[in-house]
Simulated assay, not measured.
Amino acid sequence: MSDGAPKPASKSTFHFLAGLSSGLLSAILLQPIDLLKTRVQQSGHHSLRRTLSEILRPASSSSSTSSITALWRGTVPSALRTGFGSAVYFTSLNALRQNATSIPVLASTAVHTPGQGSSSLPKLSNTGNLLAGAVARGFAGFLLMPLTVIKVRYESSMYNYTSLPSAATSIFKTEGLRGFFAGFGATAIRDAPYAGLYVLFYEQSKRSLSHSELFASPDVEGKVKEKMGVGRAGLINFSSAMYAGVLCSVVTNPFDAVKTRIQLQPGVYGNMVTAARKMLAEEGVRSMWDGLGLRMSRKALSSALAWTVYEELIRRAEGFVGNNGVGAGKKDKVL
């Protein structure tokens, strides 16, 4: 990369921190939706209202004040998993995209002018976006799988873990190391295509919206086209992330439903094929779509929050470095 190229996009540490921040924010705000999805997929009765009433039901007549906080059960493992998952994912994704730009079949032919689009991230072809998203998510999913298992069991009513150490100890004693990777097959098959399609749809939507009459900045004759403002860029990224999240959630929900059953009851559901057959035989096709509405809402909102915050942090850093440093040495000093 030349000295005049923006350095923040190549800084792994900054991408890690930006991903961690966006992941933590979305995890904490949207934990109630995640909790409801897990309980609906666990129950088999498909009723959101019934599930919600069970969660909000006070443990005793004198503990009515604790019912609302029950919706945030599992927030700590969820925040850790989502926060560090986002950090690893965004860092890996950026590294893959940076390297892919040197491969003709993966690189985008579009010319990127910093500040004039809604994003400062590397541009790839459709194939490049699909592969980069899938590989980055698969890698992050494997590293964070133990936290994912603990998170799902914390959210379930089948386990009464009191702390992360006790949960890890219990899983290790009863299932060994293998227990921390229960459902990884279904998770990988769900997450890799989801992430690949997500990045593809997200980038296509951003490109379309950036050139639409609604979002395009005015092109004044004889003047340099002004940089896209924070509000317009944020709205484009947020809308694109919502759109991509909804589409990908619908496509991959059956894998999510199967994955949840395996993680909650590995001894009953075994592997992905066994679990799918058992669910279809006992509960029908509808069981594959348990929690779809909740997952779709959660994924769309969490993706929108995470990607919008992440993209804006990258844009701001790029702008700050560009305005306060000239040359690689000065830029490196900033970040």
Rank of each mutant, 00 (worst) to 15 (best):
T174C: 15
T174I: 12
I150S: 09
L124A: 05
T169L: 11
P165Y: 11
A167V: 07
G176S: 07
Y159R: 08
N126G: 14
E155F: 09
G179W: 01
K151G: 08
A188I: 12
F180W: 03
L164F: 09
L147Q: 02
A186N: 00
G179N: 03
F142E: 00
T127K: 03
L121Y: 11
G183K: 06
A186S: 11
L130D: 00
S166T: 12
I189Y: 01
Y159H: 02
A132H: 01
A186K: 05
A168K: 14
F142S: 11
T127D: 04
A140H: 05
G179Q: 05
I189N: 10
L164V: 15
R190D: 09
S156D: 06
T127Q: 02
F142C: 12
A186I: 05
G117K: 01
G183I: 05
E175R: 03
P165V: 10
A186E: 01
L124Y: 06
F184Q: 05
V135C: 03
A186H: 12
A167L: 04
P122Q: 08
I171R: 07
I189E: 09
P122T: 05
K123D: 04
Y161Q: 09
G185E: 12
L177C: 06
P146N: 09
N126Q: 10
A168E: 08
S166N: 14
G117H: 13
Q116F: 14
F172H: 11
L124T: 08
T169R: 13
L124H: 03
R178M: 13
K123L: 05
R153N: 09
K123I: 14
S163A: 07
T148E: 03
E175Q: 12
G138N: 01
T127W: 08
V135W: 07
I171H: 04
G128Y: 01
S157C: 08
A186W: 07
G185V: 11
R178F: 10
G115L: 02
A182V: 02
V152F: 11
G141P: 01
F180H: 00
K151C: 15
F172S: 05
S157D: 06
F139I: 01
S125L: 07
G128D: 02
T174R: 10
S157R: 09
G138E: 06
T127V: 04
M158I: 15
V135N: 08
G185R: 03
T187Y: 00
M145C: 14
A167I: 12
G141S: 10
E175G: 14
T174K: 11
P146D: 03
S119K: 04
F181A: 05
Y161V: 09
G179L: 02
Q116G: 02
R137T: 11
M158G: 11
T169K: 13
T187C: 07
I171K: 00
L124C: 04
P165Q: 13
T162C: 15
P122N: 06
D191R: 00
L130N: 01
N126P: 11
G185S: 10
V152R: 02
A132L: 06
T162D: 15
Q116M: 08
K123C: 04
T187A: 10
K173W: 10
N129Y: 06
L177Y: 10
G141W: 00
A136I: 01
M158A: 15
K173C: 13
V135F: 04
N126R: 15
L131N: 08
S125Y: 12
G183N: 11
G176E: 03
S166L: 15
F184I: 12
V149M: 14
